[in-house]
Design a protein around this nucleic acid. Structure first.
Length: 615
DNA sequence: CTAGGGTTAG
């Protein structure tokens, strides 16, 4: 009786929500059929639409209901297009678009249809469908609809067509704040963050979303300083900061490895009681992980009520990067127990976790399970991880087998992983092969030349060393200057290799002297030895003591209170000599030193490093 | 009853 009343007033359909179970849907469906109300009022069509929009997990069921509908309305088809535009198979939207065009009821697509269809194209990131749909928009006369205009701008940004974004935007006589924000975001996504800023600067009204778009744009382009500056400007102008703003701020801190600023952001979120959403929590985990504070990252992780594949993958990747391979694999088990489906990014973390612990067989099993159990085709990255995994364990032939077995042409990264292993395990022939391959792919890959030169030096093959140098000169290979960044009391200090311009350089120099004195006392052989000289890695300077990380560590020793760990971020890989020296400093000065290099973390303590000598 | 811009992992 009560259900009948519900149906006559139609609220049964609006009862469909995301938590409605399939059984409940079936119950409602049965009531609709039993009560014979399906005729005349298009209840079934509305029911199908309602499922599609509010309960997209049951899109199949929605289709089933739709199939019992003799003459679905435009409303129903539009709802289906909308649902599929957000699904994992957006291309199915076009099926319903065709049904509109071919309908015997003379249905004609309206502004809603195109709005959703444009989103489908953005989702598909397809240059085949995007422009024709834009054409259809114009043909049907909807090109002046602001909803569709903003959608088109986002769509062309997905396609990487900045020119088209500008054309669409330019044809809007008086773009509103939404279209302007879409344009800011689009320009940044296409790499022209300068133009994004121009659009942003001339906006007559900037709401918090516009600010967030601009900050995120800087953040994505790696313009960290600009991102943080704009965030501060946003606060000074009294614009309401929300949790989305903080996601970009945290992401910037992750990028910089700026723990102090990251902690400040965390405190700001709590002080202002911003909602701790799933995304924000994940950004926090990533920030702590990329700043080397894995304890704090896991504290946040365990405190989160809800976790998705991003949350798990961030934590797992953080554990692997920080050298906690077993923990990473434990987390993987827990994730599966929790019923979260791993994806290709999760497997990058899993394989890295295996690599840092040297679990070759387990890594192989996980790699095989990708396709077999999860139907994920391994990508270049996964093959690269396998090469690294085998290579680290000294199984160079197996590593090479993985490269040979790649379904596509191996990328430089795979060969680089092999080359690194060749350096560690002193295999000159394979090292030569690997570096030749890298240089074929990337003629100016500085790291490849340096590693090869290191291998030759290991073999006292000075002709080889000299040939590599000549080759580099002939090809005009330039090196990226080594650079180390560290925070002291929230202030960022940058040290370039050989740069003595720091205001406290005199004190730093005294400390560098003190460091070498203590090193010598403890038996460290100064690196004037020509063998050491040639074993340096990505950097080549006359005096190894000028390597930026050493200068930064010296500055840390004089500027950070006793007991405070020294945290530094280096743009290149740490060189062998610096690694040795840092191990000893951690012991001699009783300091924890945490170094993030281009690939991973090194946690130095009591003369040991978490990477156990392989990086 | 179906619309628009900002947000996380490699």
């Amino acid at each position: 009786m009560s259900s009948l009343r519900c149906i006559t007033k139609h609220p049964t359909i609006s009862l469909v929500e995301s938590s409605t179970t399939l059984n409940q849907l079936k119950e409602i469906h049965t009531q609709l059929l039993v009560n014979g109300l399906l005729n005349g009022d298009d209840l079934l069509g509305r029911f199908a639409a309602s499922i599609a929009v509010h309960n997209p997990n049951n899109l199949d069921y929605s289709n089933q209901v739709l199939s019992q509908c003799p003459n679905p309305t435009l409303f129903t088809f539009n709802s289906m297009i909308r649902a599929y535009s957000k699904s994992s198979t957006p291309q199915k939207s076009f099926h319903f678009y065709s049904r509109i065009l071919q309908s015997s009821d003379d249905l004609s697509p309206d502004n809603y249809t195109f709005n959703f269809l444009v989103r489908t194209c953005a989702q598909l990131s397809s240059r085949e469908t995007g422009p024709p749909v834009h054409g259809a928009v114009v043909k049907h006369g909807f090109e002046n609809d602001p909803h569709i205009q903003s959608g088109l701008i986002s769509m062309y940004a997905e396609l990487g067509c900045l020119g088209s974004c500008r054309r669409v935007f330019g044809e809007i006589p008086e773009p509103d704040v939404v279209c302007q924000t879409a344009m800011v975001s689009a320009c940044a996504k296409c790499g022209d963050v300068g133009f994004a800023r121009e659009v942003f600067d001339v906006m007559p009204r900037r709401d918090p979303i516009a600010w967030n778009a601009m900050i995120a744009g800087y953040s994505e382009c790696g313009k960290s300083t600009e991102a943080l500056n704009l965030f501060h400007l946003m606060q000074m102008e009294g614009v309401k900061v929300n949790h989305v703003s903080m996601i970009s701020v945290l992401s910037t801190c992750s990028h910089l490895g700026a723990l102090d600023q990251g902690r400040w952001a965390h405190a700001y979120i709590e002080k202002n009681r911003l909602p701790m959403t799933l995304t924000l929590g994940t950004a926090l985990i990533d920030m702590y992980a990329k700043c080397g504070d894995m304890n704090k990252a896991m504290e946040v992780f365990w405190g989160m009520r809800e976790k998705n594949v991003y949350t798990w993958s961030s934590a797992m990747n953080g554990l692997a990067m920080n050298g906690f391979g077993e923990k990473c694999l434990e987390l993987f088990s827990l994730m599966k127990q929790d019923g979260i489906q791993p994806n290709e990014v999760t497997f990058v973390a899993v394989l890295r976790g295996c690599a840092v612990v040297g679990l070759v067989e387990e890594g192989r099993d996980h790699f095989d399970s990708m396709r077999r159990v999860y139907e994920i085709d391994p990508q270049l990255e996964h093959y690269g991880c396998m090469v690294d995994l085998c290579g680290r364990a000294g199984r160079l032939d197996e590593a090479l087998d993985f490269i040979v077995s790649m379904p596509v042409k191996p990328h430089a990264g795979a060969w680089a992983a092999l080359l690194n292993a060749c350096r560690m395990y002193k295999n000159m022939e394979m090292g030569e092969l690997a570096s030749r391959k890298i240089v074929e792919l990337e003629a100016k890959n500085h790291g490849a030349y340096v590693l090869l030169s290191n291998i030759y030096a290991d073999f006292r093959n000075w002709d080889g060393v000299s040939n590599v140098r000549q080759l580099m000169k002939a090809k005009g290979v330039t090196k990226l200057p080594g650079c180390t960044v560290m925070e002291v009391d929230g202030e960022v200090h940058e040290f370039l290799v050989g740069d003595k311009s720091h205001p406290r350089y005199n004190e730093i120099e005294i400390m560098l002297g003190e460091i070498s004195r203590r090193l010598k006392l403890s038996g460290y052989v100064a690196n004037t030895n020509p063998v050491f000289f040639d074993i340096e890695e990505e950097e080549k300077e006359d005096a190894l003591r000028d390597h930026s990380e050493k200068v930064a560590i010296a500055f840390g020793l004089i500027s950070l209170r006793k007991g405070m760990p020294i945290r530094i971020v280096k743009n290149l890989r740490v060189c062998w000599d610096c690694h040795e020296v840092t191990k000893m400093i951690s012991k001699l000065f009783n300091r924890e030193i945490i170094v993030r290099d281009r690939n991973r973390f090194h946690h130095f303590k009591d003369g040991e490093c978490s990477c156990k000598g392989y990086w």
